Structure formats: structure tokens, C-alpha cells
Amino acid sequence: MITVQNKICASIDKVWGFWTIPEHIKKWNIAIDDWYTQDVKNDLKVNGKFQYKMAKRDGSLSFDFEGIYTNIESLSLIEYKLDDDRTGQVRFEKIADEVKIAETFEPTKQDSVKMQEEWCQTVIDNFKKYVERI
């Protein structure tokens, strides 16, 4: 399993909303500058589907990151299963005037664990910058 995390100086409501609302997801869900999140569908409920369409800015490549939610505890926990059967979870914990967010997930077999960890840590870091800037 891989875990990436960060602490965000914002309310739990704001952190939860910015993590789950499609128009916000499109603004922070990026790890490399020449990629972007083209479209987001997010049905935040148990058995609800999520789909993030990722694309290179030059249009040469794209892929869908998708799965279903297996457990939702509002303002606290999101568990999911990806289309390739890997699982993951995102925990939200209020600590004083910050929110600790931690995502744990099963890595793919075809990419290095280090690369996946760095990629996802960059996404969480971008999320922090976005939430604290808005």
C-alpha cells in the first residue's frame, strides 16, 4: 500500500467540498504540468461512480481514472474500488485549525511504487495549495 498525506489550513467543510466537487477537482488534480483533468463525474455515494478524464495538454494522450465508492462517511472517510479492482481510501481528520488528509491505495504492478507515490504526493500537495489559495 502507498500512503500520501498533507495538512491543510482550512475548515473540514471546505476541504471535503474541494476534494469532492467536480469543478474544484479539475483545478487541483494534476501531477505534471503538461497534463490536466479534462472532465470529472462524481456521484459521491456508496456504489456511486467517479470518473476523472486525464489528458495531455497537446491532445496526444488521455485516459480515464474511474471506479466506484464502497464507503462514505461524510467529512471523514471515502473508500473506493478502481475499475482494475485496486482499492483505496481517503481520510480527513480535523486537528486544531487544520485538516489532515491521507490517501492510501494499492499501487499498480506496471509502474514503480516510488513513481506512483511521488505522483500522488504531488497531487495532494497541489490540492493543499489550491484549497489554501481560494
Rank of each mutant, 00 (worst) to 15 (best):
F127E: 01
M115E: 11
I134Y: 11
G17N: 15
K114S: 13
I68N: 15
K53F: 04
D111S: 11
A31T: 06
E118M: 13
I8H: 01
A96Y: 04
E73W: 02
S76F: 01
E93W: 01
T87K: 15
V40P: 05
G48H: 06
V99S: 01
P22M: 05
W35V: 12
G88A: 09
K94H: 02
I25D: 08
D43A: 11
D13E: 15
E93P: 02
I101P: 09
R57N: 15
L61I: 00
Q89N: 15
I21Q: 12
W19R: 07
A31H: 04
F65H: 13
T108Y: 11
F18V: 13
K45V: 09
R91M: 06
A102F: 03
D111W: 08
S74F: 10
N42V: 03
Q89G: 06
I21P: 00
R57A: 13
I2L: 13
K114H: 10
V90A: 14
A55L: 09
V131S: 03
E106H: 06
D43I: 09
M54G: 03
N42H: 12
Q116C: 09
V90K: 02
T87W: 06
T37A: 13
I72A: 10
A55G: 10
C9S: 14
I12C: 01
N126F: 10
W119K: 10
W35H: 04
W35E: 12
I95N: 02
E132Q: 05
I68K: 13
S60C: 07
E23N: 13
N42Q: 10
Q121E: 08
F63L: 05
I72P: 12
Q121I: 09
T20D: 05
L61D: 14
I30A: 10
E23M: 02
K128E: 00
I95E: 00
V40C: 11
